[in-house]
């Protein structure tokens, strides 16, 4: 189900924010005008992705610098994927679909 997660304006400056969706921590990122949502705890070692950085269009985990595609959750040259969430922005409000998407894992 769709859950209100915050205001688009809150992402304007830092381009990232940790929110809670359905009791789970979710990291929102604003990349070139599009909002993406990923599970906040990194699939590698559980570090908080919202404390990470956007660089060259990828979400860089602050733990071990894994680089995730914010749209798919795929990590550059890793075999596991970060769960992602569908996002809708309506009238400056960010909504997140609370069921996470886990892409198939490919080596």
């Amino acid at each position: 189900m769709w859950v209100y997660a915050g205001e688009l304006a809150e992402l304007a400056q830092r381009k990232k924010k940790q929110v809670t969706v359905g009791g789970r921590a979710v990291a929102l990122f604003l990349v070139d005008g599009t909002v993406y949502a990923l599970a906040d705890a990194c699939v590698h070692k559980g570090r908080s992705l919202s404390r990470g950085t956007l660089w060259r269009g990828a979400v860089i985990c602050p733990g071990h610098q894994w680089a995730f595609d914010p749209a798919t959750g795929r990590a550059e040259d890793q075999q596991v994927c970060q769960p992602t969430y569908e996002v809708e922005v309506r009238g400056g409000k960010v909504f997140v679909e609370s069921n996470e998407r886990i892409p198939s894992e490919t080596p």
């Binding site: 570090r47 404390r51 990470g52 950085t53 660089w55 860089i60 985990c61 602050p62 733990g63 071990h64 610098q65």
Partner: peptide
Amino acid sequence: DRGSEITAAR
């Protein structure tokens, strides 16, 4: 424990 600043430094 400053991974994001390290990304910036890179």
